[in-house]
Design a protein around this nucleic acid. Sequence first.
DNA 1: CGTAAATTGTAACAAAACTACAATTAAAGT
DNA 2: ACTTTAATTGTAGTTTTGTTACAATTTACG
Lengths: 111, 111
Amino acid sequence: MNEKDNPLLPLMDFELLKRLVVGIGEVSEITGIPTRKIRYWEEKGIIQSEKEGEGATRRYNYLNVKKILLIQEMVEEGFTLDAAAKKVEKRMEILNEAFRKLANSFPNEES
Amino acid sequence: MNEKDNPLLPLMDFELLKRLVVGIGEVSEITGIPTRKIRYWEEKGIIQSEKEGEGATRRYNYLNVKKILLIQEMVEEGFTLDAAAKKVEKRMEILNEAFRKLANSFPNEES
DNA sequence: CGTAAATTGTAACAAAACTACAATTAAAGT
DNA sequence: ACTTTAATTGTAGTTTTGTTACAATTTACG
């Protein structure tokens, strides 16, 4: 649990990383998935985005996008959407937890 | 230089991180700096953003935002904009290099 | 073929961002 | 006090990006 001497310490600002949230157009650029499809997946409830207030636009953080990429991979491998979603769900639990722990192990927001 | 056993390996997708670019409104939210001011700093050339094509909107990546935060700190400490920019410039060289090296040390885009 | 899953189209509207003017305020020097 | 430069702000008019809510189409499979 002790992260001293971690070479990333002076570089990674997790507080910042957490707040780096991109719009749906950007997600589309990154993943190659059309925005329409991304919204559809979200309607189905298999992916998530944050909405600040009412009538605000969708925002996706690092892990939101990561999840989309993972689902895409599975689908390309031949899984159905629901099957892919289920598989990725478990994977995301691990990633979420790892991310949480990691963020806590970088206590100072020094650059 | 050997990064095996790095606890971040299964978590950090640097290819993704590099592409997580936020709009100016988001930068404003993150930093507390009004968009108008951010554009002004950019006009002056002391900060940067990426523009995909012509007539596209500004996008800021992790390091772009980091730089803005650093300049803000220096300005709050009493430096002039230009002085702050100069100081931060050197700091960013180090960060840029560290970031580059780090990205290379995470070779696979496995989650 | 029939059914459910998955994707796509789009009109009408709303939010976010842009430029290009100009004005205002703050700091520093003489 | 006045001038000059630095720094910030205001905003109108326009463009880009994103939204919802309808429906239609395509794909997979028994």
